[in-house]
């Protein structure tokens, strides 16, 4: 079976590539060796945000080059870096309120609620919804809605109000986790026990065992039931 080919235009330049490849693999097939625009290759790092258009369609679409399949007559460009504003803060000193967000990112006030950011998100996150939640001071909701953000920057690149959504999102998640989510009391207690040396003797005796002794203990250990 002959390989199905597609024509893609990388920053305007045409290449014939197999049509069952992702944009990233297609560009490598064409001869590109990535430096920027390629990170984890598995949709976790946000290095390969891509804007593209297909023929006879004026609309710009987005995707991650490592996940998005090529299409025939696809015009594409990676946006490997976006010089967005990043505020400096000490999360310890802040209160989980709208003021904390707006003091560091006053441009959030300028949100036009146009939803362009949401349309530009390759993770299908309700970006405008979380920006609006942050604006209302609903930090928990902003944290929850933005959780899957990869910080690729495509939202900010398209925002007419020049909001850097992904940095606002990270601030909200840190505010929520530090100041709203209840503390893990059992963790605090365990840290103290370790500091007080509660387990030192037990561990010292494990360390002193030869392989046979410790293997016997390991093979006999009881396993907590799963959930």
């Amino acid at each position: 079976m002959a390989e199905q080919m597609a024509t893609i235009y990388v920053m305007g330049k045409a290449y014939e590539v197999p049509s069952d490849l992702t944009i990233m693999k297609a560009m490598e097939y064409a001869g590109y060796r990535f430096l920027r625009g390629c990170g984890c290759r598995g949709a976790f790092c946000g290095a390969c945000g891509t804007v593209y258009r297909t023929q006879d369609d004026y609309r710009l679409k987005v995707g991650l080059a490592c996940q998005e399949m090529v299409q025939d007559d696809m015009y594409l460009s990676e946006i490997p870096f976006f010089p967005g504003n990043k505020a400096n803060y000490d999360v310890e000193d802040l209160k989980p309120k709208a003021e904390a967000v707006l003091a560091h990112y006053p441009e959030v006030y300028r949100c036009l609620a146009c939803n362009t950011c949401t349309k530009a998100c390759p993770q299908d996150i309700e970006v405008m919804e979380y920006i609006q939640a942050a604006l209302r001071g609903d930090i928990a909701k902003a944290a929850d809605l933005s959780f899957d953000c990869l910080m690729c920057g495509l939202c900010a690149a398209r925002c007419p109000a020049e909001i850097v959504q992904y940095n606002v999102a990270l601030l909200c998640r840190r505010l929520y986790s530090r100041h709203i989510a209840p503390e893990a009391k059992h963790l605090e207690a365990r840290v103290k026990e370790v500091r007080d040396g509660k387990f030192d003797k037990e561990i010292a005796s494990l360390k002193a065992m030869d392989q046979r002794e410790i293997a016997k203990l390991y093979d006999a250990r009881d396993i907590e039931p799963g959930d």
Binding site: R173, Y176, S177, R178, A181, P182, A184, L187
Partner: peptide
Amino acid sequence: LEKLGVMFDKDSDGTM
């Protein structure tokens, strides 16, 4: 990490 604001999965009483 909890103190730095990593959003761990927790129960409503804070138990991880």
